[in-house]
Every structure is written in structure tokens, then in C-alpha cells.
Amino acid sequence: MTKLIYFGCLSRSRYKGTCENATKIIKFLDDEYQIIDDPPCCGSLAHQVAIKEDVENHVKLVNDWFKSNDITELITICAGCYNYLTRYYPQYLGSDFKVKVLHLLQFLDTPENLEKLNLKYTGKKLSVYYHDACHLRNAEVPIIEEARNILNSIEGPIQLKEMENNRMNSLCCGAGGGVYSIFKENSDFSSKIIFDQMRMSKGLITACPFCYTALKRIQEENKIKAPVIKFEDFIFKLMEGVDPVSV
């Protein structure tokens, strides 16, 4: 009976600080969750570009790894992992897939956890936007209001604003489906129009590491003032009493 923190390959490889922050948040709320070294990739990126047999073998390998480590529950901070594990693993494995999969946002958005987190912001008036990632809104169990509930639970002069395109209507950052590695030009345009919908804001919060990568590049290249902040980092900074939009 092991509860696992499953970061996802992109965060694990590129955003180690975020993984540490997420771990601290999760362990603060439930100390039973743990990290296991070198978990295998869920295989999401290979899904569209591999033959069925290879995908099936890989999914089985990952499930065997879950079984051998006695994983019964996991929390992921990756939108891609969440979407893939909840949509395709049951399709490939049927009842042999027994792991309860949660995204960090679902884990945080319970009355008990929100109460325990007791998020407070004491700085100057702050407005932020949240970007709905395709992986979260399209999932079998969509994650849409959770992020809003968490951000709205923060005490203090903080305001969550909505873009014209939000929730199921959100704009894709242009990086999904492996497109970022082959045709970055998609995010040149798509990520830019996300920023174009922000008005007088101090930050853009995202819960997807793929969106973060694309949005961050466009923010820097276009010298956009409002920083892109990963959801976990934002929450952890609030817990630490640090300015949540500081970079």
C-alpha cells in the first residue's frame, strides 16, 4: 500500500525545484506520500507516434512497476501524465490497472486540505490569470474548477481574472502532441495570443509543465512583464510567506 508522488518526466528532468516544492506541499498535507527513484515515463508522448504493440508493452511495463512497488494511489503534477494515465491506462489494461490517480489540483481542492493549507497573501494588490491546459480540461475527469477553487480560497488582496477564452474554451499553447519539439512556430503564435488576452496582470499561472515551457519562452522572447508561474511554485511561495509572483 504505497502512495506515490509521480512528477512526470518533464518536471523531473527540467524543473527539479518545482518537484521539491510539490513534494513539500503534498507531504505537508499527507506524509504517507513518497518518492521512488527512477519511475518509468507514462508513455504519453509515444502514444500517437508508436505502434499499438509497443505502446501496450510500455503501458504494461509501467503497470508492472506500479505493482512491484505496491502503488495504490499516486499524485502527479503533470497534466499530460494525468490525462494519459486516467484515459488510456484503463483502456489498455482494463481492471488490471488498479492505481488511483490524482492530479495535484484535485488533491488540494478538498475542504480539509484547503483548510489545512490556509493560504494567505499579505502583499500588495495582486491579480493573476490561470490558463486551462488542454490535458486537464480534456481529461476523462476534467480538472477545471479545482484550480479556481484553490486560488479563490487564498485570503488577502489577490484576484483571479479570467481570459476571454477560459475553461473548455481555453486556447492551446501550441506545444502539445510533441509539436513543440518539431514545429515550435505553433507556440510562437498560440502562446502569444494567450498573453494577449491578459489585462493588467502580474502573473500567469499554469498547472501543465508543457504549457509552462512554451509560455515561458514566449514571455521571455517578447519581454512580457507578467511572469509565468507553475501552480506548485505559486502555492509553495504563499505557504512560505514569499511573494508568489517573484521569479
Binding site: C134, N138, C172, G174, G176, G177, V179, N186, S190
Partner: peptide, 11 residues
């Protein structure tokens, strides 16, 4: 391969 799989079309 320009398709990002955002699934807006299906939605």
C-alpha cells in the same frame, strides 16, 4: 504533425 492534439475540434 502540426496538430497539437488539443482536441478543440472534438469538443
Amino acid at each position: 504533425f502540426l496538430c497539437t492534439g488539443c482536441e478543440n475540434c472534438t469538443n
